[in-house]
């Protein structure tokens, strides 16, 4: 268990560092880094405070601490992915509207002489 918590700590720190480096290099926008940072911090706190993890484990009814940790990690990342699905959907909507508008404007520019078809 100690080993698992240690590895979890490492992963959380690696995640935080990766996100911060990406932010510095402008590979990720600040607003989209928040989900990852929040997820990493949750992992870090739980790995550093096994008492908290134990309370969570008994609350969800999982006796085995590693299983509880895995359960929690899955939940946290599902939330992150779901948030990204929503963001992607918004982006796709905006992108489609933009592409349609570009096509319409381009068409009207090319056919400016007659105005109609």
């Amino acid at each position: 268990m100690d080993r698992l918590l240690f590895i979890t700590t490492l992963i959380a720190i690696a995640l935080i560092l990766t996100v911060l480096i990406s932010l510095r290099r402008a590979h990720i926008r600040a607003e989209y880094s928040v989900s990852w940072l929040a997820a990493a911090v949750i992992l870090l706190v739980l790995a550093q405070a096994p008492g908290l993890l134990g309370r969570f484990a008994s609350w969800v009814g999982i006796e085995d601490l590693p299983t509880a940790l895995l359960f929690l990690v899955t939940g946290v990342f599902l939330a992150v992915f779901y948030r990204f699905s929503i963001i992607i959907s918004h982006l796709r909507d905006a992108n489609i509207a933009l592409a349609q508008r570009v096509a319409i404007l381009e068409f009207r520019l090319e056919n400016v002489e007659d105005g109609r078809l």
């Binding site: 592409a99 349609q100 570009v102 096509a103 319409i104 381009e106 068409f107 009207r108 109609r116």
Partner: peptide, 24 residues
């Protein structure tokens, strides 16, 4: 009317309907 990139049938049709509507 050429779309700047592939949108799929619905997106393409809607672009056409929009243009048709705007052209009256």
């Amino acid at each position: 009317m050429r779309l700047p990139h592939h949108l799929g049938l619905g997106g393409a049709l809607q672009a056409g309907y929009r243009l048709a509507f705007e052209l009256g």
